[in-house]
Structure formats: structure tokens, C-alpha cells
Amino acid sequence: MKKVLFSAIAALLLFSCQNDQSESADSNLSAVAAHRGCASQEVLAAQLKADPTLAIRMNEIEAFTAKNLLTGRLVNGVIEIPVVVNVLYRTTAENISNTQIQSQIDVLNKDFNATNPDFANVPALFSGVKANVGIRFVLDQVIRKSTTKSSWGYNDAMKKVAQGGLAPTSPTTKLNMWSAVIGSGILGYAQFPGGAAATDGVVIDPKYFGLSGSANAPFNLGRTGTHEVGHWLNLRHIWGDATCGSDLVSDTPTHNEENYGAPAYPHYSTCSGTPVEMTMNYMDYVNDNAMYMFTNGQKSRIAAIFATGGPRAAFGI
């Protein structure tokens, strides 16, 4: 397992070295993605470029997180998070049902409380670090809006009324989720803690929102929501978005890069020490049926943002 140095200098390097990335539009918006695509890191890079003060705020969050991890000031019990779902639709299929929306809430509750049936599949090697994060999600309201847009991209247009979208509702005390066609092969994306309240939340394409049906396999089990909410809770991709990079968590193995599909266990890294990769972690890129665990280190990192003075402290301890 790798060691992570949580210091202001390390955090500054992390947030000052992001590269702005872009993707071309997907010409076939109706096709189901062949691989998981999460644009959270690309969105972060664009936000850092547009707002130099964001890097400062996120560096402060990293320093705060490190302090809370070291002193053990963590969340006690279960945090309850109200969820507002904003549905932007052009077609009947995009106007996802309340049942489908509730199925996503149910998946989040299982995955963040280790009651998902496949949690039992965690290999013995990782049994000592597998975690019950202890967060409860409650559907607060559903807001719907018809649109003429066939896709929204990942520049936060769906969150802006002036661009035809829906603004977030009480983003400091509620998790806002948008169901909107993103395009470019992107299943979803999230804003990390520290970003502007006006764009805070998680976006998921309606094809991958909750239990969306076998036609959308292998991303039809609601794990896109789990992955993106993980980002909203300050978790990084497990490979650190760099070859043999760091996700700032001490008990996850170093990965070469993202994994796709359903890798056979054990899957070895060629990074230092050739560790077995934790491909079943929710923060990798594997298929929905191949991801089923968080770690204690990830739980501690999440808990720190809810502590007094943390970026999501308004949700309460």
C-alpha cells in the first residue's frame, strides 16, 4: 500500500499541474458507452483555469483534510444528505421516472453503507480495509424541465438557467444531481468540494442513472452515481489521473492507470512493488458489476469534509 504525504506543498503541486483537456462531440448520442467515461477531472481543470482562487481553496481543503485525518476528528454515526434531482429532458426516455430516480438513491444507500450484496465479493487481501462509509441519502425533491437540447456537454450549462438549465437548490445543504444527456461518451461528472455553489453537484446521463435497464449494460446498475458522488465527497480516481499516480489515500494500491471491463483477480500493477490493483474500488473505471467497495482511507477522507470548518460542514456531523 502506498504512503501519501498530505502537505500544503503537495496539494499545491497537485492542483497547479492539472492540464486543460477537451473532447470532441459524440456524433452518436444514442449509443451506449463502451467504456466508463467520467469528466470530473476535465471539469476541474477547466474550473482551475477559469478561477485561479479555486486552487487556493482546494489547497486549503487538502490541508484541512490532512489535519483531520491525523487528529482523528472524523464523522460520528451516519450523515443524512438530502438529494435534489434535476431532470432535463427532450424525449420521453430522457424524462426518467420517479422509480428510476429512487433506484439511484437506493443504490447509493447500499454502496455507501456496505449493504450491497456484492460487498461480500471483496477479496481477502482487501478485507482489512473495506469500509462502511456510513452516509444516508434521502430524496428531497424532483424538478423537471423540458428542453430542445440534444446534449449538454460538461461545461455546466445544465446548471444555468440562462442556458436553459436548472440552477441548484440549496447547494450548501443539499446534494443536487442532474439527469441530462452529456454526450462525448461521458457517463457523468461531479464537482469536487471547494468549487462554486452555483455549479455544485453531480451530473449523470439518463442512460446510466440508477437501475436503467439491460439496454444500458454494463453501466445500468447505478454505480455511475456512486462513482460521481464519491468525487463530490472529495475522492479521486484510484489511479490518481496519472501513471502510477496518487489518489491521496493511504490504503489503496498504486494503479498503473484506469481499468475497464471486469478485470480478472488478481490484477497486478507494474508500479513500484507490483501491488495487486483494487480494481473493484468504486473510483476505478470498471463496469458496474465489477465495482463494489470503498476503503477505510477513503471513508476517513470523506469524513473530514463534514467536520467543523470543512467544505461540507453545513451538512452537519
Rank of each mutant, 00 (worst) to 15 (best):
V4M: 04
V4P: 01
S7N: 11
A11F: 13
L14V: 09
F15T: 04
Q18C: 11
D26R: 07
S27P: 06
A34T: 10
R36Q: 14
L44I: 03
A46R: 11
A46L: 03
A46S: 11
A50R: 04
A50E: 10
D51I: 02
P52S: 14
T53A: 14
A55K: 07
R57C: 01
A63L: 04
A66I: 01
A66R: 06
R73K: 08
V78G: 05
I79E: 00
E80T: 11
V84F: 01
V85E: 08
V85F: 04
E94R: 07
N98R: 08
Q100A: 11
F112H: 04
F112L: 03
N113L: 03
N121H: 09
N121E: 12
A124I: 02
F126A: 09
G128M: 04
V129F: 03
V129G: 06
K130A: 15
N132F: 00
V138W: 00
K149G: 09
W152Y: 06
N155E: 14
D156S: 10
G165N: 11
T169K: 04
T173P: 01
L175A: 07
A180D: 08
I182D: 11
G183F: 05
G185W: 01
P193Q: 12
P193Y: 10
G194W: 03
A198S: 14
V203Y: 05
D205S: 13
K207A: 15
G210F: 07
G213W: 05
G213Y: 11
A215K: 13
N216I: 09
N216P: 06
N220S: 15
E228G: 12
G230K: 03
H231Q: 13
L233M: 14
R236C: 08
S246P: 04
L248A: 13
T252P: 02
P253I: 10
E258Y: 11
N259Q: 05
Y260D: 12
Y265S: 10
Y265R: 03
Y268W: 12
C271Y: 10
S272A: 15
P275V: 12
T279L: 05
D284S: 15
N287M: 05
D288Q: 09
M293F: 12
K299V: 00
S300C: 05
S300Q: 15
I302M: 09
A303C: 08
A304K: 01
F306K: 01
F306E: 00
R312G: 03
A314H: 01
F315Q: 01
I317W: 06
